[in-house]
Amino acid sequence: MNAVCPVIGQHLLISRSDRVLLSVDHIIFGRPLAQRVATDKQNSGSCVVILGPNGAGKSLLVKTLCALQVPDKGQVLWADSAPDKQRRHQVGLMLQKPVLLRRSAESNLVYALRLKGHDKQQSLRLSRDALQQAGLAHVARVNATRLSGGEQQRLALLRALLLEPDILFLDEATANVDPGSTLAIEQQLAQAKARGITIVMVSHDIAQARRLADEVILMHQGQIVERAECAIFFESPTKNLTKRWIEGELLV
C-alpha cells in the first residue's frame, strides 16, 4: 500500500488559470483521504474525471469539497477561505440520483433560481430558455417525478448549470441513464466547459473519461493514486496500479 499512497493527507488543489477554485488540506474521515496534485492551467473551464473502484472515497471527497460533509480532520478551502453560504452557488453538485421536487420541470428550475435571488419573471424566462436550449421544452409542464430517469437527470443538470457555478461536481451522474440521455448530458457538459465552468466528474466509466476528461485522477482506498492529463494517464501511466486498472483488473 505504501507504494501507491506514499504521503498521507496532503493537499488537493483544483484551479484554473486566473484563480484557485478550491483546495483540500489533510482531510481525514477516520482514515486519510486525498493528496497533492499539480494544478491545471487553461483559459476555458476544464474537465477532471475521478475514477476508482467502489469505496475508493470518490463520493466522499466530492461531498466534502462541496461542504456537504465535514471531515473529522483537515480543511476544505473555496478559493482561499473556508466554505460559506454566500458562495454556495459557486460550487455545484449533481447527485447520482436526481432529487427533484414534486412539481413541474419548469417549476423545479424556477424554484432554484428564486432561492438564488432572481425575481419571478426573470426566473421563469431563464428556465424556459434553458429548457428550450436543452431540448426539454416539451416536458416543461410535466411533473418532474414523472419524467424518465434520463430526463430527470438532464433536468437536474440543467438546474445545477442555471445557477452558474464556477465549478460543478457530478457524482456518477450518468450511471443509471440510457445512452441517449448520456450523450445529451455530455453535450451539455461540453457547452458548460466552453463557458468556463470547471467540471469534476466521479465516474466508473473509463470510456467516458476518455471522451470528456482533460485530466484524470485515479483514487483507491481513500488516496489519489495518479493524476495526469488524459492522454498521458491512458497511454503512459506511471503507477503500476493505474496500468492494472486501465487493463480492466478489479481493484479491491
Partner: peptide, 16 residues
C-alpha cells in the same frame, strides 16, 4: 432525508 443535501446545495434557508 431525501431533500436535505439538495436543499443545502440550493442554499435554502431554514424557513425555505
Amino acid at each position: 432525508a431525501h431533500f436535505h443535501q439538495q436543499l443545502s446545495l440550493l442554499n435554502a434557508t431554514t424557513l425555505q
